[in-house]
Design a protein around this nucleic acid. Structure first.
Lengths: 225, 225
DNA sequence: TGTACATCAGTGAACGCGCGTTCACTGATGTAC
DNA sequence: TGTACATCAGTGAACGCGCGTTCACTGATGTAC
């Protein structure tokens, strides 16, 4: 608990009122869960009204505003929660990368984590994607997480390349196209019946191959892949 | 003109009233140009009011509704215009691919076209990206264009591979990650001062390398790359 | 060339709907003595 | 254990603002004779 203390407190002061009773903690939790549920049904954030939300959460309009500063505050909270997990997995990925496993396993593990995390909370991810197009705060938080992830990867993979001068650029581009491809899947594969759907496992293999092929072509690697 | 006749007429009936005089054609053009200008300043479609729009276009609210069925109609028109160019370049790309140039040149040319087309009309592209998250019609139009592009690439590149059974999948994934990466650049690189900007030329090289590396790893190719 | 009339196009104030937010009130929980 | 009071939390009708859309009117262009 203590490592989170400071950021958690800031979140509360900025967007949510700290709860004093279990009752209100419960309301908070129900509203968060309701939002995730509604977003997962494919609705955009702007199409989600407070009235809908509190109906789904078995709460009232006033209860909502008692907990959250305004409508946006809730989406901020949702993003921060999602990204807290993301940051944790970024750290884990970096540690894995430093463990000395062969490169192809590392890349596969990293891509698998990315694909898996996109499988969860697709609705929220889509809503955030939209919001980032417009809102600087949401976008900058995403950029911050990307930076952390890339930095972890650079550190972890440094042992596998002979010259590290291009490593940061290559990781950056690879990161972009992996997450970009996932965004595309997020947007286009969901409701549209196009017959182009790719299973997660195959998508992971294909993106892993793309990353490895790109790395081989662009960097002087140590050892076989 | 005759090859476009039918679709143009459908567009007009559905979203715009056919103009009878030069005056109204002019108004139409001014409104379209104003929308592109405002979007290119980073504003989202939902943040763009009719009042703003007609002020920028030197027109009036009534003039707008005289030409366009409603606000959405304008965005439909903008997407259709953008995609008409896209479809044309898809055809051109397929022809180039069939011309027998070496694979790496083909891929580089294709990526360069994609990167270049994203350089133009970034505002409109971003607005459409948002809209696609929500609106099925916008999304399906995008999927249709992707399919055409992929089909052209498959046909054009078939001569370069020894076995074509996986070609469609590989092209599909490559297409996704190229355009996904471009979407990422579109979203994140623009206003955020992160120092991660990559010049178009380098981005083209990196994505070309990624595509070629992926193709080499995943397909039995003919000849050197 | 001129006149009358019809259609096309532009104008902008006014309308109205949707939805985020407020607020006066009721009820629940905690605390002091 | 009971009572009085303070604070926390929930309720939902009412408010009000923003913005898309309409509509009655004016002006411009085209056409018939």
């Amino acid at each position: 608990m203590s490592p989170k203390r400071r950021s958690k407190a800031r979140v509360e002061l900025e967007w949510v009122k700290p709860a004093q009773q279990d009752r209100s903690r419960d309301t908070h939790a129900r509203i968060v869960a309701a939002a995730e549920r509604l977003l997962s049904r494919g609705r955009a954030w702007s199409e989600l009204t407070i009235a809908d939300l509190v109906a789904e959460a078995n709460a009232s309009v006033g209860a909502f505003y008692n907990r959250f500063r305004d409508k946006d505050a809730l989406l901020h909270v949702l993003q921060l929660e999602l990204y807290a997990q993301g940051a944790a997995t970024a750290v884990a990925a970096a540690e894995l990368a430093a463990s000395g496993a062969p490169l192809d396993e590392l890349v596969r593990a990293f891509v698998a984590v990315a694909v898996g995390s996109y499988r969860e909370q697709r609705g929220l991810r889509r809503a955030l994607l939209v919001e980032m197009c417009t809102n600087t705060v949401f976008r900058e938080r995403a950029i911050e997480l990307s930076k952390q992830t890339c930095a972890g990867l650079v550190a972890g993979l440094a042992a596998h390349v002979k010259a590290t001068d291009r490593l940061a650029t290559v990781i950056d581009v690879a990161h972009r196209f992996v997450y970009g491809a996932l965004d595309q899947v997020l947007l286009y594969d969901d409701q549209a019946p196009t017959g182009r759907k790719i299973a997660d496992a195959q998508l992971t293999e294909e993106l892993t191959a793309a990353c490895l092929g790109y790395l081989e072509r662009s960097l002087p690697l140590r050892g076989p892949t």
